[in-house]
């Protein structure tokens, strides 16, 4: 199974995970899978940074970007704790991409995305017109989609990708509700629950231009999300937007 157009994937990782064995998770193995499915570029965040250590994790990203500059884009992953480290990391790795790609994981870092310690990071994102990928989950007090309209409105120049779009059917509906009221919010399709009809519903409610393809490779299997998009009952032009053009547009701005 292969995408007929080159895919730009907004949600990937480098590294392992604590709760189950990782398979074929090194950059070269991932490149082989990307070639298999016609994923031209994958934007990666450090899994080490998401779980444990941002400075060391972001250094891993730099290594991969240096080896494969044409195939990977790098998020700078930041933690609101300790306060101040986030902006230091963003400045340290400012060469990764312009505009900056920032990854937040309020779920694993156990701190609310609208909390005080995140404020300097959101201000940085707004000032630099960053693309900010944030892990979200249905109704989660730290990262539920409904927390984002206020953040998006007060940081209108930041482009915020609601990672996993809230995951569940209800989470998706929350993400749609958020995106309806804030034009700088976008839905990322990476996730393990590909509900029947959900993509058609989202396209109907907010338009394909607000939805991006994400795989979560090498955490989740890219082919499940690719197959979902390609078989969705939406116009082909919408599929092309989701698989490529929407992320390209954000990256190019």
């Amino acid at each position: 199974m292969r995408s007929p157009i080159p895919v730009l994937d907004c949600h990937g990782h480098i590294g392992f995970h604590p709760d189950f064995p990782a398979y074929k998770a090194d950059a070269e193995s991932m490149l082989a899978v990307m070639d298999l499915m016609n994923i031209e570029k994958l934007a990666i965040t450090s899994t080490l940074a998401c779980y444990n250590d941002c400075p060391r994790g972001n250094a891993e990203i730099e290594t991969v970007l240096r080896r494969h500059p044409d195939r990977f884009l790098g998020y700078v992953t930041v933690n609101p704790n300790p306060p101040g480290q986030g902006v230091e990391e963003l400045e340290r790795w400012s060469s990764f991409h312009h505009p900056p790609l920032i990854k937040l994981h309020p779920g694993l870092h156990k701190y609310p995305v609208h909390g005080e310690h995140y404020k300097p990071i959101w201000d940085y994102a707004n000032e630099h017109e960053a693309i900010v990928l944030v892990h979200t989950w249905d109704s989660d007090p730290n990262c539920g989609p409904l927390l984002f309209p206020q953040i998006a409105r007060t940081h209108p120049r930041a482009r915020i990708l609601l990672g996993h779009a809230g995951v569940t059917w209800r989470g998706y509906m929350q993400a749609v509700e958020a995106a309806k009221v804030a034009p700088n919010l976008f839905l990322d399709l990476a996730g393990s629950q590909h509900h029947r009809l959900i993509l058609e519903r989202c396209v109907d409610l907010i338009g394909a231009e607000r939805i991006l393809f994400g795989s979560d490779m090498p955490f989740l299997e890219a082919s499940m999300t690719l197959a979902h998009v390609l078989t969705a009952r939406i116009p082909d032009a919408g599929k092309e937007q989701i698989l490529r053009h929407n992320f390209l547009s954000l990256l190019s701005r």
Binding site: M1, L36, M37, Q193, H194, H195, R196, L197, E221, A222, S223, M224, T225, L226, A227, H228, L230, T231
Partner: peptide, 18 residues
């Protein structure tokens, strides 16, 4: 997992397995 999930996902995983 029909009717909850689209079958595309499980088929896609099998189709792309080497």
């Amino acid at each position: 997992r029909l009717p909850l999930f689209t079958p595309a996902s499980a088929i896609g995983v099998l189709a792309s397995a080497r």
